[in-house]
C-alpha cells in the first residue's frame, strides 16, 4: 500500500487520473451510487463491478461502502473529535489538501 499512488483530493472531489489503484473508477462509481441510494445507478455500476471483478469483490465492495454508512453516523452523532482519527495521527495539512477542512463540522469548530 505504501507504493500506491493516490490523489488525496479524490476524497472530496471524486476520482482523478492521478490515483493509480486498479479498477478505482468502477469501484468509486459503485460507491457513489450507493451513497445516493439510486437503485438504477447502483444496478448499473454493480453489474460492471461484477462483470469486471467477479462475485467476491462485488460483495466486498458493497459491504465496505455499507460499513462506512455506519461509522460516519457514530462519529458524527456522538461527536468523536476528528483530530483523534488515525489513532491521534491526524495530520492537519492532509485535512487541508483533501478539502476536509471545508466540512461543516470543522468550519463550525473554528
Amino acid at each position: 500500500m505504501a507504493d500506491t499512488q493516490v490523489n488525496l483530493q479524490d476524497v472530496t472531489k471524486g476520482l482523478s487520473k492521478d490515483t493509480q489503484i486498479p479498477h478505482a473508477e468502477i469501484l468509486l462509481n459503485f460507491a457513489e451510487a450507493i451513497v445516493k441510494r439510486d437503485v438504477a445507478m447502483i444496478s448499473n455500476t454493480r453489474n460492471i463491478v461484477f462483470e469486471t471483478l467477479g462475485n467476491d469483490i462485488t460483495v466486498d465492495a458493497a459491504a465496505v461502502a455499507s460499513a462506512f454508512h455506519g461509522f460516519v453516523r457514530i462519529a458524527d452523532t456522538i461527536g468523536i473529535p476528528y483530530d483523534t482519527a488515525a489513532q491521534g495521527q491526524d495530520v492537519p495539512e492532509i485535512r487541508e489538501i483533501t478539502g476536509i477542512n471545508n466540512f461543516y463540522r470543522i468550519q463550525e469548530a473554528n
Binding site: 476524497v11 465496505v64 460516519v72 458524527d76 482519527a85
Partner: peptide, 13 residues
C-alpha cells in the same frame, strides 16, 4: 479508496 469517498460524501471529518 471506497471508504474515504463514502465518508467524504457524508462530510465526515
Amino acid at each position: 479508496l471506497m471508504a474515504a469517498r463514502v465518508s467524504g460524501l457524508h462530510q465526515c471529518a
